[in-house]
Design a protein around this nucleic acid. Structure first.
Length: 606
RNA sequence: GCACCCGUAGCUCAAUGGGAUAGAGCGUUGGCCUCCGGAGCCAAAGGCUGCGUGUUCGAAUCACGCCGGGUGCGCCA
């Protein structure tokens, strides 16, 4: 990031926290809060796991639940489908783990579900009945359809997600992409798990920056500020006043004065502010529409303007505030943090103040079980302080708040203070997708629509495929490359399987399918990948990590293409045909479901 | 200076509550369409998991200490 851009990003909003520390207490709280959610939720608990747990439990002094905790997946399917390591038993029984594994392997007889048991060193490896695996999995997908992967673990619970939150009077930059798509994906994931989700766009529509903007207009603007002004012009004004302030600090006082007028409800200031807000919102909405993102609530910082007085009063009543150098602060020294500044020397409110008021308001409004702030790592300290203050105020729900941290976006080749507009990136990507579609599928009737879906999907997936914590090195080539582990690859696989269904020209039937026909290595691998999907969705929610869904999808697509390469569907003997056709349909279904969770379209042709 | 985050193949990233031989994609090299979509598949090459010590039957994963990078640290958001 170069200097001019850095100057602009001084006022960028929302970010960070001690994610690792917070996630743990949060999880334990959740478990206490709801009796229905237990640790088992995060584990696979299908028929095979249960069968293994029972059969091993019968031969040991471990309970089925204890055995379940031990079950893992071998590194290679040739070793088995599930494994129970015997190290824990070895300590208990004071015998070598390999001997125990061998002993258990000999004692456990094959059953309908578990076709074979053998030991490999200290591991007790189970081979499942492939027919059962196929039947369990595909019946479930076919029956649940678009609901496959969802559950009701969140029924009756509310999650508030604060995401996107672009800054008014500034363009919707590429750096807002992360919070926007991560937040949206989490919103979809939680909703899929039955939670009531409140997605909030906490717009950066208040603060000293508007004082600067208004001061700039007064200096250089001509006539009245009206809504025909563009965001680009507003940005220019902002950059210009910013430079001016650097040269002449007195100008800053001018800006502060304007912000004070705004906070005190001065009609002229208020009117100009509204113009800026409306102009920006119009532009933001265009981007949200492209991304297919909506919010349950658009309550920016300004929304809390009339609430901060009471918030400050409560802080004071609880004896938490002190006055230091004219400002009202909460001393956090005992917790090794700098003070939380609640009110400025000149009585104006601050970002932190408004966040505090927002937290209180959201609690009283939603009584959430969780509140997630999807904000980049730069604001870690801010949220640490905020959560600590909530705790000091005696709010037990402070532990339900978590900062969903993501890394900064780097590697943007910005020329001289130019912010990269997200809209431009999306359009660029759409253009490339259009060329690709034109080349690959010139007769497609809805080429424009598909180009949109593929182009935008590429940008979204590029962001969501990696863990959110790492800095994201934005690379045009990577984002626009349609080959490899990309959004277009997933969409292509989906379209390819849709194509088989079209060409087959026969209804997919579930009744009478001979699942024993689905036993080749590539086929089983695909079925397993499909079976793993629901768990990935739950893990994504547990870790606030959409990339877990992304990777599950890549795995399914990878296995799907390998299956496709090796096994013909159309034109093979009828019993096998029907079995494979069902698998194709289930594959298509789960890919579509997963893409939807990520906020990516799944066109049937491309 | 203090705090937090991140160091895994040339590059971007994985590695299922610490487990078996650390895996993908991009890039490089070489193969595969008379056959359901080649935006695909197969194969090769590429690693002291930043360094060290410790805990453990077992460490990329946990602890401590270094080194390197990023970010933050009182009236910006």
């Amino acid at each position: 990031m170069n200097d001019s851009l850095r100057a602009i990003s001084i006022t960028e909003n929302r970010n960070e926290d001690r994610w690792a520390e917070l996630s743990l207490p949060l999880r334990s709280v959740i478990m206490v809060v709801s009796n229905t959610v237990t640790r088992e939720v995060w584990w696979m608990s299908d028929a095979f796991v249960t069968a293994i747990a029972n059969v091993v439990s019968a031969q040991t002094d471990l309970s089925p639940a204890e055995v379940e905790e031990l079950i893992e997946t071998p590194p290679s399917s040739e070793m088995g489908d599930y494994a129970v390591p015997c190290f824990a038993l070895a300590r208990k029984w004071r015998k070598p783990p390999a001997a125990i594994a061998a002993e258990l392997a000999a004692k456990i007889a094959p059953s309908e579900y578990l076709a074979k048991v053998e030991n490999a060193g200290p591991y007790l490896n189970f081979f499942v009945n492939k027919r059962c695996l196929a039947e369990e999995t595909l019946k479930r997908v076919a029956t649940e359809g678009a609901r496959y992967g969802t559950s009701n673990v969140g029924a009756g619970k509310t999650v508030v997600i604060d995401f996107s939150h672009p800054n008014i009077a500034k363009p919707f930059g590429i750096h807002h992409l992360r919070s926007t798509v991560i937040g949206n994906a989490l919103r979809n994931v939680y909703r899929a798990l039955g939670y009531h989700v409140v997605g909030i766009n906490h717009l950066g529509d208040w603060g000293t920056q508007f004082g600067k903007l208004l001061a700039a207009w007064q200096r250089w603007g001509t006539g009245e500020l009206t809504e025909d002004i563009s965001v680009a012009t507003l940005l220019q004004l902002y950059v210009r006043i910013h430079d001016e302030i650097e040269n002449d600090p007195a100008v800053e006082e001018e800006a502060r004065a304007w912000f004070r007028r705004l906070e005190q409800g001065d009609p002229e200031a208020r009117r100009m502010w509204e113009v800026c807000r409306n102009v920006s919102l119009k532009e933001f909405n265009r981007v949200y529409e492209m991304l297919g993102i909506t919010f349950e609530s658009v309550a920016g910082e300004s929304f809390y303007q009339d609430k901060i007085h009471d918030t400050l009063q409560r802080l004071q009543d609880k004896g938490l505030t002190t006055v230091s150098e004219g400002a009202t602060i909460v001393d956090l020294k005992p917790w090794g943090m700098p003070p939380f500044i609640a009110r400025r020397r000149d009585d104006a409110s601050l970002y932190a103040t408004r966040d505090l008021a927002a937290a209180e308001y959201r609690w009283s409004t939603y009584h959430f079980d969780k509140m997630l702030y999807v904000v980049d790592v730069a604001q870690s300290l801010h949220f640490q302080q905020l959560f600590k203050v909530l705790e000091l105020m005696g709010y037990e729900w402070h532990a339900r708040c978590a900062h969903v941290v993501f890394g900064r976006m780097l590697g943007l080749s910005t020329r001289e203070g130019k912010v990269i507009f997200l809209e431009d990136v999306l359009n660029h990507s759409i253009e490339l997708a259009r060329k690709m579609v034109e080349e690959k599928n010139p007769d497609l009737p809805n080429k424009d629509e598909v180009a949109q879906q593929v182009g935008i999907g590429a940008v979204i997936f590029a962001d969501l495929k990696r863990g959110r914590i790492k800095d994201y090195v934005f690379d045009w080539e990577e984002v626009l490359n349609p080959f490899g582990d990309t959004g277009p690859y997933l969409q292509y696989t989906h379209a390819r399987f849709c194509s088989i269904l079209r060409k087959a020209a026969q209804p997919v039937v579930m009744g009478g399918v001979d699942y024993a026909r689905l036993s080749e290595a590539e086929t089983v691998a695909l079925i397993k990948a499909i079976a793993a999907f629901p768990r990935a969705v739950q893990q994504a929610a547990r870790d606030y990590e959409p990339s877990i869904v992304s990777r599950a999808l890549l795995d399914i697509a990878d296995k799907a293409n390998k299956f496709y390469e090796k096994h013909q569907v159309i034109g093979v003997e009828e019993t096998t045909f029907h079995a494979r056709l069902l698998l194709v349909d289930c594959t298509r279904q789960v890919l579509a479901n997963g893409l939807r969770l990520l906020g990516i379209a799944a066109p049937e042709e491309m």
